[in-house]
Design a protein around this nucleic acid. Structure first.
Lengths: 150, 150
DNA sequence: GTTGATGCAAACGATTTGCAACTGC
DNA sequence: GCAGTTGCAAATCGTTTGCATCAAC
């Protein structure tokens, strides 16, 4: 059954590539396949190290470029990061973040109904919880307005 | 009233520094003050550029070092990032993340009750929403076990 | 055959580090 | 005065880019 899932995802992948006019290269296939099979949220480097074993000619740059391509296509997600710069905030009232994928701006919002919810029990087993927040990804109104102009 | 809030936060800051045996330097004070007054989640560089104007001798390294110190003290937060490396995952079932602050491992968990909730209306005004997830920060069981050993 | 994709090397930006001078306590 | 902190410069790490070669269509 897991087998079947892969097949579906791979077909979906091929369709997406074709639609986007992207060549179905061996590297892309290998990177995508590894990504749908691994559940440890690998970094570019981690992927490279794994794949290098079976495909020694692979280069790290290709991994980076391919991941960027996949992300643009919406095939994969980059975990909760905002750009490559770390951003900071002083502790204050409990709030959550809206991250604009276009301009990397961060907006705060409040959500008291969420704040009072209990996390599912399975989370307690993962470790000691320090803080919890909601992250919304999207395109902020400002960027949307600019896009429309064009 | 906002004035009063600052005073409190500053006193809290001084107390924390004293407790931790940290010197109350001008740089630290300036950086902390800026951070509690700015609401745009600045990066180290952004802070530096702002503060440099009034304190030209300030160096970017100090900003980095100070932010790291503050973070360790729990005075500030680094936004949802996991280490400085980007991490990826293929699209799959809707899930959320537990990030271990010690080892940077990422664990998935499910939370159907959250998935059906509606975001507060104010978020709609911020922009077009692409996806929403819950991020839990903490120390995973594995790291906790290792810590106890010592 | 054409066009886009790869590998390589070099560039780049963000962050960290070693070290000598300096400053709070 | 001493230990901790800073500024500077150099190093490091993750990621991006220019370019010639190569592979998919």
């Amino acid at each position: 059954m897991a087998e079947k899932k892969y097949q579906e995802q791979l077909q979906h992948f091929e369709a997406i590539c074709k639609d986007a006019g992207l060549k179905l290269t061996h590297q892309r296939l290998v990177i995508y396949t590894e990504l749908i099979q691994s559940h440890d949220h690998p970094s570019a480097e981690a992927l490279y190290k794994t794949l290098e074993k079976s495909l020694p000619s692979l280069s790290l740059d290709t991994v980076y470029r391919t991941l960027a391509t996949f992300e643009k296509l919406g095939l994969i997600h980059r975990l909760e990061t905002v750009s490559s710069q770390a951003r900071y905030e002083a502790l204050g009232e409990r709030h959550h973040h809206f991250l604009c994928d276009e301009c990397s701006r961060v907006y705060d919002f409040f959500w008291p109904a969420f704040d009072t919810m209990r996390l599912p029990e399975e989370v307690d087993e993962l470790g000691e919880i320090d803080r919890t927040s909601v992250v919304v990804h999207g395109v902020c109104s400002q960027c949307r307005a600019e896009k429309k102009k064009r």
